[in-house]
Design a protein around this nucleic acid. Structure first.
Length: 298
DNA sequence: CAAATCCCCTGCAGGC
DNA sequence: TGCCTGCAGGGGATTT
């Protein structure tokens, strides 16, 4: 899946295509596990609404609607949020008259391998301006769509910890108190900090030179400081490079991220550590594959 | 409570 | 070529 940097890239791509456009109709696939709100109800609630802002907390995207309700989206492992490819000049022309603040450039729409709508496309959002539709496609259906009435809350959102871009040494240290779980597992706990997933947990621990198997409570104050800084730096760097494209993640415009070439440990088992040449090791921790340098990470 | 396990779903790579 | 197994950016429910 998309972790924080990838979700933020998606948010920035999609936001201008969503804002201030009246939703005329929402097509869905049949009820499934993907729909936390039944698809018919979701479609009904969205019809006639428009999106005021598209925000992100951790890996969740939240479309704040004009009536105070919200559409909460999670991309899961294989979720893709993208804009319909504008094939005809008519739909491009139509959107030019839509009241967007910032209009995505013509170039954005002409890339080669953009995602395409198909039977895995669980949401197709159509607009009253008849411009490009917004699609949510998710092959594995680990993604989520949830509609929240004004002031309604959901524990998925309320329990989230601080957004990982804002993690501080103090918060991290408090979270490690008396926790015997591995520090890697703690970083994946979205109630502690929101947005770090398997790739960036491994990369941040390498950057901080901390062994992923260490008990969380064994980290010193100095290590918590180093790790908090490493998390922020790794995520910011990945974001600047458009995230990591591995397997099927691509940007809404079909372009790939470029951070995967910067990975120091993730999926590099057996290859030499970029710092000390020792072969990178892979172990399983909390059912997730974990990569680290046995020499650099103490 | 915290920690570990199992499960949801589909597609692909690699081994035989 | 084709079948079979394992594996995958997530997270929630259940068990221990």
């Amino acid at each position: 899946m998309p972790e924080l940097p990838e979700v933020e890239v998606v948010r920035r791509h999609i936001e201008p295509w969503l804002l201030q456009r009246k939703i005329s109709r929402v097509r869905t696939t049949p009820a499934s596990y993907f729909f936390l709100t039944p698809p018919a109800k979701l479609a009904r609630r969205l019809q006639g609404r428009s999106v005021n802002t598209l925000t992100r907390h951790g890996k969740y995207l939240i479309a704040n609607l004009d009536d105070g309700s919200r559409l909460v989206l999670h991309l899961g492992m294989t979720g893709q949020l993208f804009v319909e490819c504008a094939r005809s000049s008519r739909s491009v022309a139509a959107v030019k008259h839509a009241p967007h603040k910032s209009q995505p450039s013509e170039r954005d729409v002409s890339s080669g391998s953009r995602p395409q709508a198909d039977l895995h496309t669980h949401l197709q959002i159509e607009f009253a301006d008849a411009g490009p539709k917004v699609f949510f496609r998710d092959v594995r259906k680990f993604g989520k769509a949830l509609w929240l009435a004004p002031k309604e809350t959901d524990s998925r959102i309320t329990r989230l910890g601080v957004d990982a871009l804002q993690i501080t040494a103090e918060v991290l240290q408090a979270a490690t108190y008396a926790r015997s779980t591995a520090i890697k597992s703690l970083l994946l706990d979205q109630t502690v900090l929101a947005g770090v997933g398997n790739i960036y947990a491994d990369e941040a621990l390498f950057a901080a030179r901390i062994n992923p198997r260490r008990a969380a409570k064994s980290l010193t104050q100095a290590e918590c400081r180093k790790l908090a800084k490493a998390i922020r730096r790794v995520l910011e760097c990945a974001l600047r490079r458009g995230g990591s494209s591995i397997r099927d993640y691509v940007h809404p415009d079909g372009e790939g991220g470029r951070y995967q070439t910067q990975h120091k440990v993730y999926r590099r088992q057996g290859k030499p550590c970029r710092r000390c040449q020792t072969p990178i090791r892979r172990v399983v921790l909390g059912q997730r594959s974990t990569h680290f340098c046995p020499l650099c990470q103490i």
